[in-house]
Design a protein around this nucleic acid. Sequence first.
RNA 1: GGAGAGGUGGCCGAGUGGUUGAAGGCGCUGCUCUCGAAAAGCAGUAUGCCCUUACGGGUAUCGAGGGUUCGAAUCCCUCCUUCUCCGCCA
Length: 433
Amino acid sequence: MIDIQFIRDNAELVAEKSKQKGYSVDIAQLITKDNQRRELLSQVEALRQQRNVLSNANKGEKPTAAQINSGKAIKEKLSLLEIELETIDADYYKLLRQVPNIPTASVPVGSSEDENVVIGTIGAPTKFDFEPKSHAEIGETKGWIDRDRAAKIAGSRFVYLKGSIVQLQFAIIQWVMSVLTDEEILKTIIEANNLKVSAKAFEPVLPPAIVKTDAYKATGRLNEDEVTYKLAGDDEQWLNASAEHSLCNMYMDEILPADTLPRRYIGYATSFRREAGTYGKDMEGIIRLHQFDKLEMEVFSSPETGEEEHKFLIAIQAYLVGKLGLPYRLLQKCTFDIGFPNASGWDVEVWVPSQNKYRETHSADFMTDYQARALKTRVKNDDGNIVFAHTNDATAFALGRIIAFIIENYQTSDGNVRIPEVLKTYMGGREIL
RNA sequence: GGAGAGGUGGCCGAGUGGUUGAAGGCGCUGCUCUCGAAAAGCAGUAUGCCCUUACGGGUAUCGAGGGUUCGAAUCCCUCCUUCUCCGCCA
């Protein structure tokens, strides 16, 4: 949610920025409801005051009939106004929640994903002196990916992953954990990118794979129609569509002392997505499945360091992909593409030989205080002031997809796949998958 | 899954219908005392929202939501959750 006071003071700006993100919001209507709400609220509170005065007047003694009658009169008036307030409240919050976050100044304005800006291209597209195969082809030949039997057991868009690539997945996990918990490595990334953040290590987390409705809604990421699976029965519970969805709400309704920030987490979770309406090349192999494993970074920080943490997470993503030896490019997403709760968003796209183009593997999302306001995650400063925290999340690796792209970029003419240098120690020193 | 007992402020803990936003203790902050510290004494110490330039005032919150009542932390209902025992299991 956005600060209502900010909307009152900057109605036109908010309307304009919402439009740039591709959302139409009736700010005028929101302001009207806000005024009505406050008017009614003061009436209700005045009545409640009368009620409190009356009931405090004769503590310990029996009230007179007259007192009871006037109490009853207040109660009747109050209940009518309270119902009215409830209705306006609902309208007000519904409108308020429709207002997306305001992009930061550096976000390019654009009206489609074509207007995302390529900030840098690192490494050249992999060259082969043979016709490269798709990861799906290689995976099937090697017996690494079995979609047919998974379809029989689980349905479409599930797989059995088998053999070496399973070990590869665990090698990636081990490597990422070792990088993100090593303050010396973090320091080198910070210095190389001229960032003003602490080198505090990330804490590894295995978060719940299931999220309750209220907690999920507060993240702003619950998408019932296209993404999120609801558990059967009466339980108000959903399957996690990303580790982020049970990480970002970890401190829901809490106030964090400023000197404990930033709090950085590296979460690992199996993620589930409906993927309604997707089609085409991405359906091949393991690029887009209903179930995949993901390493996700999440950072809670003070407002002062939120944007710098965002840059830090992007720098870490670049470090990780670079160390893996994959050709990639860095994309700053335009206003249209950054997403509803985002103030800024960047993607990493890795070169995919079989598709002859770069495909998204990572995204970094900076929410300013937008998500924290809905979650009521706050920071208590040393001077006692309380403000909303800033939240950042960023992919460390979406494992299915990154494995697919490693396979494609590291394939050899004899049909094998080399193991990236940084992962060899986690694969028993082997050279070939 | 079954049975029982709980959920009160940063923490412990009192409180079963009327100055209880909440005793008392701990912790924390400030002041007094001291060369300094400790001890002691005094004062302060939750969060949201509304009004207010400010000082301040109002209102709500005792796990969450609803109900009863002139009046609810206290009574009733539903849900969530913690602990203990049993069952089952990795």
